[in-house]
Design a binder for these strands. Structure first.
Lengths: 197, 197
DNA sequence: TTGCAAACGGAGGCAAGCCTCCATATGGTG
DNA sequence: CACCATATGGAGGCTTGCCTCCGTTTGCAA
């Protein structure tokens, strides 16, 4: 999930979206610019953001975009994979906290860290090996946090990990003008998951 | 909100989306067919559903669609207004129940009744006199339920009506394959709003 | 420096949707 | 029943986005 050349190094052609950065310096640069631009565009306009617009944002030609990401799906998946990695790393970092704090902290990342939240949330429903892998990775990272909180009696035992993600993820589906409101709503969502003595 | 000829019967041209059904029998029929088709299409594909597709579903020509709804927004607003009316009526029906049951019941309608929920949710952020009016109507219907539950000590006092709608509305943003899961998630959301002794 | 594989950019063909326009059809009233 | 205001449907022009193709540019290894 974190290193570069895992998965199937078999066939020469780029097949899956995981890893596989291009080699030449300019190509690599453009690749990153495109990824960043796409992240922004997806965050603003959802999965249906225009590819031409993304190329424009990145300051590269449309042809370059297609060289790196042959289909819209490839692009989306690459952004998605990036986000998933961030999320997984966050879980590790929070592992030292007490059960509830760790879970709550991670869920906060889940909503606030990723600029692609809407896209990620939508992806949660898609069929695709990449999304399956991503979901699995998210589960591997976050589910232990939930389980721990449940074992500690902090989180309701009848909630599945997927339930929790849907509840918390739903909150961010539409943009909040006021960050304080996001905070209030998020608190309510977390309270719905929590058990108080 | 419920009768036909309120608002401004002034100018002859159709201005706002409230009420104002066409007169001739066939026109009226097509109007309803379009509204129904649009409701479905919006529910399935979101606000970006294709107008041509909606006309096709309704079994009318694209020209007819445009006669009734000059812009995509007109169509969307009409569907929206219809949904709002349903929601307002529901609030009246539930008024007899105890505070918390009334609120919870209404919020359940809010998520499950409207086929347009996703579109409505997106619309919740748009600027437009119609949406403003709609939000106001929803507020007029639902806010008393929240206030009552808060006064009774059943709902947390620091939650605004808008907070509550966002939390509950978010839940339905993506389709649930399993109705039992929707129920679980909804329960968590409601628990986040509720105060337990 | 030079050569060339790798990368670039964008013109242009194609598809899908939007919306206008108008020749044709029809409900309902006198 | 006849008339006409009202309504209908869809062809076609326009815009926008998708993607391919290819002539030009550029990083970098020798």
């Amino acid at each position: 999930m974190t290193d570069e050349d895992d998965a199937t190094p078999a066939d020469g052609a780029p097949a899956d979206a995981f890893a596989r950065r291009p080699k030449r310096a300019d190509a690599r640069r453009n690749y990153e610019k495109l990824l960043t631009a796409a992240r922004e565009a997806f965050a603003e306009a959802g999965v249906s953001a225009s590819l031409e617009d993304i190329a424009r944002r990145a300051g590269v030609g449309i042809g370059t975009l297609y060289r790196h990401f042959p289909t819209r799906r490839d692009l989306f998946e690459s952004v998605y994979v990036d986000e998933v990695e961030v999320l997984c790393r966050a879980a590790d970092e929070l592992a030292g906290l007490p059960p509830w704090e760790a879970l709550a902290g991670w869920l906060r990342r889940f909503v606030s860290y990723t600029a692609t939240k809407r896209a990620i949330a939508e992806a949660l429903n898609y069929d695709s090996p990449v999304f399956a892998t991503g979901r699995q990775a998210i589960g591997a990272a976050g589910e232990p946090l939930l389980r721990r909180a449940q074992d500690a009696g902090d989180a309701r035992p009848d909630a599945s990990f997927d339930d929790v993600l849907r509840l918390v993820g739903g909150v961010t589906m539409y943009p909040f003008a006021d960050p304080a409101q996001l905070e209030r709503v998020l608190t309510m969502a977390l309270d719905g998951i929590r058990i108080r003595p």
